[in-house]
């Protein structure tokens, strides 16, 4: 029967994609990881966004703390305060993290990170080792904090009566205005100003025409595309600031570990003190495999695999000279 379309999935193919882990432990591979290993791996791969202690950086998710805040004005929903199943942590870290380098962690690393997140939430002690064997023994604090959608019972009957059409209220007063908060984005005025600035820049003769001419515009454009994977952590261009990673204006040709105000890893700072410079070749080697080329770097990025991407990236970065 049927249409006779498609082909049978091979066991290897199902195994490669069917990696979801369920609350009863279905899907967990064999393996284990301890809290201290987890802390190291977390510092390397996760802390840039989630903070050294899983407390969250900027607007990135906070993973620890927040216990007993779910009834507060501003509840803090973390693995410890909110998540009902440990399987969700393991599954999400395994399939979707680190951000920008998903599915690069080993099973043992995922166990270790999960153990560290449990530890940072005071759910386990510092000597804890999480494995496929004791996975179901961990009790999540908010496991009982959920009910299945009850709108059909609690809301729909209330909201299904014949609505009032006339004399529905005695008086109406404005109780709150959005303009008081003033959090609405501007209507495109910034873009217009920027366009004007760019037009002006295009009209004025470039002061450093030699530099500009040396750039390959097509390669720069490609590099901008490649740079999308870096934007979560790095800013470049007008007004670029240090964020999770340092701002990158003028990085090509600059000494390593020397952007003002950025807190570098020990490895990066030492390399700079020893006279290392971000030449084009050095940058390419680093970006191809950051952890291999600079052991101890905090940058949690898997690396650019293609030479074309590396060339485009360096060309793109060169288009932002130091201010």
């Amino acid at each position: 029967d049927g249409f006779g379309l498609g082909r049978e999935a091979l066991p290897e193919e199902v195994a490669a994609w069917d990696v979801a882990v369920r609350p009863d432990g279905t899907g967990l591979p064999e393996g284990s990881g301890d809290v201290w290993t987890g802390e190291e791996v977390f510092t390397d791969y996760c802390a840039a966004c989630h903070g050294d202690f899983a407390e969250g950086v900027d607007n990135w998710p906070q993973l620890a703390g927040g216990r007993n805040t779910l009834t507060d004005d501003r509840p803090v929903k973390t693995v410890g305060s909110y998540w009902p199943y440990l399987s969700t942590v393991w599954d999400y870290v395994n399939r979707s993290m680190p951000f920008g380098a998903a599915q690069t962690l080993s099973a043992d690393e995922v166990y270790a990170i999960t153990a560290y997140i449990l530890y940072s939430n005071d759910i386990v002690g510092d000597d804890f080792v999480l494995s496929h064997e004791n996975f179901l023994d961990v009790e999540m604090p908010n496991a009982d904090g959920f009910i299945v959608d009850d709108r059909p019972e609690t809301e729909y009957p209330l909201f299904s009566t014949e609505p009032c059409m006339e004399n529905c209220k005695e008086s109406v007063e404005i109780t709150m205005r959005a303009s008081i908060l003033d959090v609405t984005p501007d209507e495109g005025n910034e873009d217009a100003a920027q366009d004007e600035a760019q037009d002006e820049a295009a009209a004025a003769p470039a002061a450093d025409e030699t530099t500009t001419a040396a750039l390959d515009a097509a390669l720069v454009a490609e590099g901008e595309n490649v740079f999308r994977q870096c934007r979560a952590c790095h800013q470049v261009g007008d007004g670029a600031k240090n964020r999770v990673g340092p701002m990158l204006n003028g990085i090509v040709g600059a000494p390593v570990g020397a952007v003002d105000g950025f807190n570098y890893s020990k490895a990066m700072a030492e390399a700079g003190q020893n006279g290392m410079v971000w030449t084009e070749d050095e940058l390419k080697l680093f970006l191809a495999n950051p952890r291999e080329h600079m052991k101890g770097t905090k940058m949690s990025f898997a690396g650019l695999r293609k030479d074309d991407d590396l060339a485009a990236m360096v060309e793109y970065l060169k288009s932002f000279p130091a201010e």
Partner: peptide, 12 residues
């Protein structure tokens, strides 16, 4: 499946 996965986007 015979039950939900309870993945991140349906719990957290």
């Amino acid at each position: 499946m015979d039950g939900p996965v309870e993945a991140r986007e349906e719990t957290s």
